[in-house]
Design a binder for these strands. Sequence first.
DNA 1: CTATCTGCAAAAAGTTTGCATGTTC
DNA 2: GAACATGCAAACTTTTTGCAGATAG
Lengths: 141, 141
Amino acid sequence: MADWEAMLAAAGFRITEPRRAVIEALARAERPLSPEELLERAQPEHSRLGLVSVYRALNLFARLQLVRRVHHEDGCHGYMLASPGHTHAIVCQRCGNTAEFSVEGDVQAVVERAQAQTGYRVSGHMLQLFGICPACERAEH
Amino acid sequence: MADWEAMLAAAGFRITEPRRAVIEALARAERPLSPEELLERAQPEHSRLGLVSVYRALNLFARLQLVRRVHHEDGCHGYMLASPGHTHAIVCQRCGNTAEFSVEGDVQAVVERAQAQTGYRVSGHMLQLFGICPACERAEH
DNA sequence: CTATCTGCAAAAAGTTTGCATGTTC
DNA sequence: GAACATGCAAACTTTTTGCAGATAG
């Protein structure tokens, strides 16, 4: 039984064809996808699939932390499968490819400095990097 | 002459009433505002103001880095005046208030670790913290 | 068999564009 | 006065909702 199925079941949700189609399309994806793109890629798997169900599946998965929302500075976002544990995404500004990384201790320093400067009690963070992936780097030269 | 006027002029844009109304509403704001909210707050200043001009002003200001887009995990965003220099925002999850902080060196460690882990060349980042502001902290107890 | 989920259509948000008029420089 | 910016209406895009029928447990 796949991990996501256990997660859904544990939270009292059902394992359905549309949800499976969406999550498998995400698993195959090489970069974050928009709901529209996901629909296209998931339809071969479940031809009756509608865009609405993609949205509903994504919102559910995001709530359960099975998928991650990927933002860009100007706001539009895509979805990618989230690795278990606490990781962040880095997006290639040229090709859109994405990788994940984890920075346990280093973020702690940032959080502490921010708390000292602002007096806020920090409870969460959103960190995302932008850059150029190795493949694009090579292509540029 | 206000700083934003100099910035606009230097970039070849005009100082207009709608733009002034929007930026002054932002200056008065105690938290990030949506375009719709900004319209309401800027209209007293310039009654003919339309929502479209708010959008156009915000897009321009964002391009010139005069305002910062503030994201939430689920994507919707607001706008706030950007401090000069490189700062980040922390948003209170209870009341929406926002503060800025800067973490020069500490982010560098994060960037280096990410580069080492992913092989990407990092060129930018989006870091935003969430938490509870001092006022809400007090109110809770 | 029952509660949950889906798909459709339609509504609701949110954002952008075309164009005639008004403003800034 | 010329170029730029505005405001309106309307188009477009993106996301949500209502509901009858389908499906998982």
